[in-house]
């Protein structure tokens, strides 16, 4: 079955991973800008990273027939450095117009500090001014509930937000309900130990229904599995879910959400 991987950090993965994903039926990937495992010291480092996501990684995945998309933004962890974050925000528009960029992301909160919230509000404002889609990272572990609530409060206070163009990622059992009730897309992350397992993701699909749900590996430089979406497919089959439902989750839903971006080309129109 073909699938789209809506959240993976290809810059942190090997070419072997890309090839394995292509062999398994992956047609397209989307790569949000994020914290690369260390704090960058100047805006030039971000500029080069955004060039990597919009110039080099699309070429690397194209070698295996995968279309590469990117989200460009200031991640929450480095947003703590408010002056650097503002320098980064100033260069975002030149990358948001690049042909593989879907919108602003992944932005959000990490420890839910005042600086993080300040920068997040500025990123949302930039997104509203430009009519961009938004991808939100919600915090890890004990900060997730609080951070998700702050993000939802910020979005509720912004009348220009169209919820169906907003993806709130890394939802779990205690946050998915509020995200879905707000009309946003809910991301489920198949990540060992700290996020959801394939079986728990299937549970949440069964409880809340398949609409406005995106399931991803979020595979990055840490322990993670770029093939995790195929594990979800297997878990759904094992429980007896029909192929049509599996296809909706791993292909049609990402297609529906990403198609709202002016830069997205549906797979049937792709020509590598």
């Amino acid at each position: 079955m073909h699938f789209i991987e809506p959240h993976i950090h290809i810059a942190s993965r090997t070419t072997d991973d890309i090839e394995r994903m292509a062999r398994a039926g992956c047609l397209a990937v989307a790569e949000p800008a994020f914290w690369m495992g260390y704090d960058r010291t100047c805006v030039g480092s971000f500029r080069d990273y955004f060039r990597q996501l919009t110039e080099w990684e699309p070429k690397r995945t194209a070698n295996y027939g995968l279309r590469h998309y990117a989200w460009i933004g200031m991640n929450s962890k480095e947003a703590e450095n408010i002056s650097l974050a503002r320098e980064v925000i100033a260069i975002l528009p030149e990358f948001l117009d690049r042909p593989n960029v879907l919108g602003i992301g992944e932005i959000g909160l990490n420890k839910c500090t005042k600086n993080e919230v300040t920068i997040l509000a500025e990123l949302i404002e930039l997104g509203m001014q430009r009519g961009e889609q938004l991808l939100f990272h919600t915090p890890h572990l004990e900060h997730k509930l609080w951070g998700t609530q702050i993000i939802l409060d910020l979005l509720r206070a912004e009348p220009r937000v169209t919820p169906s163009r907003v993806w709130i990622d890394h939802c779990e059992e205690h946050t998915i309900r509020q995200v879905r009730e707000g009309g946003y897309w809910a991301g489920l992350t198949l990540y060992p130990t700290t996020k959801a397992t394939p079986d728990r993701a299937v549970d949440m699909i069964e409880v809340y229904g398949p609409e406005r749900i995106l399931v991803t590996s979020s595979a990055d430089w840490g322990p993670s599995d770029p093939m995790a979406v195929t594990a979800l497919m297997q878990a759904m089959r094992r429980r007896g879910h029909p192929e049509s439902l599996i296809r909706q989750i791993v292909y049609e839903n990402p297609l529906q959400f990403m198609s709202q971006s002016r830069h997205f080309t549906p797979p049937e129109m792709m020509s590598s």
């Binding site: 700290t194 728990r200 549970d203």
Partner: peptide, 12 residues
Amino acid sequence: LGIRCRLIDIAA
């Protein structure tokens, strides 16, 4: 974190 993960798995 491993204990937390396994407890959530059991609950789920």
